[in-house]
Structures are given as C-alpha cells and as structure tokens.
Simulated assay, not measured.
Amino acid sequence: MRYRALDENGDFTLGNAHAYIDGVDAVRQAVITRLRLLVYEWWEDINDGVPYWQKIIASRDVAAAEQIIRERIQQTPHVLSILSFDPVWDNENRTLM
C-alpha cells in the first residue's frame, strides 16, 4: 500500500521526496483518515465515512459506537485483524477514547 503522507497539521505533503509512505505507516494513516471521514463529506461517495452525528452522537449508545468504529477499522485495506481494542467512554466529557 502506498499512501500520500500527511504533515503534522493533517495536510497532504506535496513536492518532496517524502510525499508518500508505504507499509505499516501507510496502513496506520489509512485507518486514521478513514476514522476522520464523516458521512456525506466525500463528494465521490457521500455514504462513505463514519456516521458520528447520525448514529453515534445522536444515540449515545456506547456499544454501537464501538462496533461502528471497530468495523470501520477492520474494513480498511490491508488491516488483517485488530489485536487490541479497549475504548474508554468518558461520560462527563462525552468522549470515547
């Protein structure tokens, strides 16, 4: 897998020798960018993305949120399995980490 590298701000790197990454780093970045993509955000496929607003935030169902995120990771190309997945729900701050 070859993937365009992102800089520390999450922007594409262009025009240098380090514009692309491959191997494990590319898969890691693919997972991250897939988790950051919102449903309706990508013009080529508005159904692709994580339904954060539609299904996770609206329902506040932690188990459903974990399952949606787990499936999104597993569906990333070149991800073979998830060895560890231990999200922690912080109800006070409404975050799932």
Score class of each variant (00 low, 15 high):
E92T: 12
H18M: 10
Q29M: 03
D86P: 05
T33V: 13
R70T: 14
H78R: 02
Q29V: 04
R60G: 04
L38S: 12
L14F: 05
T95C: 14
R70Q: 13
W53F: 09
S81R: 03
A5Q: 06
K55S: 11
D48L: 05
V62A: 06
A19S: 07
V31N: 05
M1A: 15
L14T: 04
N47Q: 01
D90N: 15
A63K: 05
M1W: 05
I46K: 07
S81W: 00
G49M: 01
M1Q: 15
A64R: 04
V24P: 00
D7Q: 06
D45P: 03
N47W: 02
D86W: 00
Q67P: 01
E66S: 06
M1R: 13
V24R: 03
I73S: 10
F12K: 14
A58F: 03
D48A: 15
Q74R: 11
D90H: 12
G49N: 05
L96A: 13
N16R: 03
R36I: 12
G23E: 14
S84F: 07
V27I: 05
A64Y: 03
A5Y: 01
G23H: 04
I56F: 00
L38K: 07
V88I: 15
P77D: 15
D48S: 08
S84I: 06
A26R: 02
W89G: 14
W43H: 07
I69E: 07
I21F: 00
N16F: 02
A58K: 10
E66K: 13
I82W: 07
V50Y: 04
V31C: 03
A30D: 13
Y20L: 11
N9V: 08
Q74A: 06
Y3R: 14
V24C: 01
T76S: 11
I57W: 11
I69A: 11
L37Y: 00
V24G: 03
T33G: 07
W43S: 11
N93T: 14
S59P: 03
T95H: 03
L6S: 04
N91Q: 09
D90I: 13
V50W: 05
P77R: 14
N91L: 12
H78M: 15
W89A: 06
L35R: 13
R94S: 13
V24K: 10
L96H: 10
G10M: 12
Y20W: 04
N16T: 12
A64T: 08
L96I: 13
E71A: 09
Y52I: 10
A17N: 09
P77M: 09
E92D: 13
Q67E: 08
I56S: 13
Y40I: 05
V79F: 14
E71G: 03
